[in-house]
Amino acid sequence: MSAVAYADAPQEPRYETIRIPDPQPRDTKIAAQDVSVFYGAKQALHHVSIDIPARAVTAFIGPSGCGKSTFLRCFNRMNDTIENCRVVGTLDMEGDDLNDHSLDVVLLRARVGMVFQKPNPFPKSIYENIAYGPRIHGVSKSKADLDEIIESSLTKAGLWNEVKDRLHEPGTGLSGGQQQRLCIARAIAVSPEVILMDEPCSALDPIATARVEELIRELRENYTIVIVTHSMSQAQRVSDRTAYFHLGYLVEEGPTENIFNDPQEKRTKDYITGVFG
């Protein structure tokens, strides 16, 4: 089965995304409908529609510049920070249109946390890195509440036992893998519903990468996770569903096992088998 071009816009071909359903349907956390992104006159993302399942890991894969990170940033409005960037379409999260500009972006980013490519702890203590979010969002009512949130967040991030005796030391003094887990702990400290991860292991060594991947598998029991990765083996290891992007289009999406073992679209197969990309 090949992608089919629509004839309604000759200057901009529209392609039908191949969708492979889950054997057991999952609840949808975010429903994207006809999402396009423009940087000035340049269109970076074309009419993307996809359902992001709740309490699962969805991986976005594809060559550099294919639009996967651009699409990821739509979920927490990070594209708003880019001059001349315009997002059209609908991103519905349980009744809220995330692209509605009357939506409070600060509150949105508490609901949709993000972990970036390079670990970026604040130049503060480990304790203050985690405490920052709960304080500004009014999550904690007392010092005891805050202490509990910090221990819980670090425990969920698999870091508590490694740092519990040095909470007041700088977060920047941790190893790269520990810093990334600190950033994950910081993201979950405000009890988000969704965690976005943009190449979270690209700056880490194999041992640290394995620990973060193990953490991702643990976190999906309680969070909806969307990860952008250049590593196809990582997508296979950690994700439940995979979406393949090419030249700003969503080409194919479905259960990870199907995408890697039986892709339906030639472009997907060529990328996965290394013919291009």
Rank of each mutant, 00 (worst) to 15 (best):
M1S: 15
Y6C: 14
P10C: 10
E12N: 12
P13H: 07
R19K: 12
P25R: 11
D27L: 08
T28Y: 03
I30P: 01
A31T: 14
D34V: 05
D34K: 10
V37Q: 11
A44H: 07
H46F: 15
H46A: 05
H47N: 13
T58A: 00
F60D: 06
G62P: 09
S64D: 00
G65L: 03
S69V: 04
S69D: 01
S69W: 00
F75T: 08
F75V: 09
R77W: 11
V87Q: 11
N99E: 03
N99Q: 13
L103W: 05
D104F: 03
L108R: 12
F116C: 11
Q117T: 09
P121Y: 09
P121K: 06
K124E: 11
I130F: 08
A131E: 11
P134Y: 11
H137L: 06
S140Q: 09
S140V: 14
D145K: 08
L146G: 06
D147R: 10
E148I: 04
I150A: 02
K156L: 04
L159T: 04
E162L: 00
V163L: 01
K164V: 01
G171W: 01
L174I: 06
S175P: 04
G176W: 02
G177P: 03
Q180D: 00
R181Q: 01
I184L: 05
V194C: 04
M197K: 06
D198W: 01
P200M: 06
A203E: 03
D205L: 02
I207Y: 07
R211P: 00
E213K: 09
E213M: 07
L215F: 08
E218A: 14
E221S: 15
Y223F: 14
I225T: 11
H230W: 07
S231H: 07
S239R: 04
D240N: 15
Y249Q: 02
V251P: 06
G254L: 00
P255F: 02
T256Y: 08
N258I: 04
N258G: 03
I259T: 08
T273R: 11
V275K: 13
